[in-house]
Amino acid sequence: MTAWIGNFAAAALFLGLLGMGSERLVFWPFPSLDKIEVPASEAALSLVSLSLGTRRIGADLLFIRMLQYYGTPEFLEEKEEGGRAGEHEHHDADFGGGVYAELYPRAQRILSMDPSFRYAVLYAATALAFNLGRPEEATALLRSALDKDPRYWRYHYHLAAIAYQESREFGKLAGILAKIVDEERETPSMLKNMLAALYVKLGRLEEARRVYEMIRDSSQDPDYVRLAEKKLLLLEQAVPSQPR
């Protein structure tokens, strides 16, 4: 028995020293517990994610829930009760309008679970600034993201874009959005669609056509692909494209 206790104590000491040394090796870019704010409804999900060491999955699931929230027409139930059952607000050219008061806190929660989830930040910031008319929330979200990921240049450009939108300098806004937008998967199709619509507004139809083509060819969002096809058809009718 004494020998067994001695063995156990020696092993515990050894493991303790090992653990002490191992702590310095860990790269852990996630915020501590006190920085994570979740409502009661999402507490279980967050706890499971943290316990299993799967924060990224936690952020993924929160992101999917945010997409579902923002993709569901607001006040639909009230409308159906008012005798307009079956008449849905379809996602169309300028879809995404409404209030969606929960969008900002939801995006912040994703950021607290995974500070490197850039797409989610850009998606929510675009929706808040350009679709929902809440640039102050978009700015706050981008600033929180920049605190955690200061070298990501798209956040800086996005902040500039919001400033141009506020000062109604649409030419400059198009210029800065063009820098953010490319075929990378990190850029939400929503943002590309915004830029194309802006080009149309500014009468720069050829550039609009190019962006819509990019959405059609590279977007994974079928709604935006359909929308781009529709817009390209309209542009073709307005200004037939030159043979290349």
Partner: peptide, 23 residues
Amino acid sequence: TVSYIMPNMTLFNLREVWQHPDF
């Protein structure tokens, strides 16, 4: 002390950090 004796699983949690920009 307990945290030192526990197996440090975060050390092996590469799947959580390998895509982080600072990794």
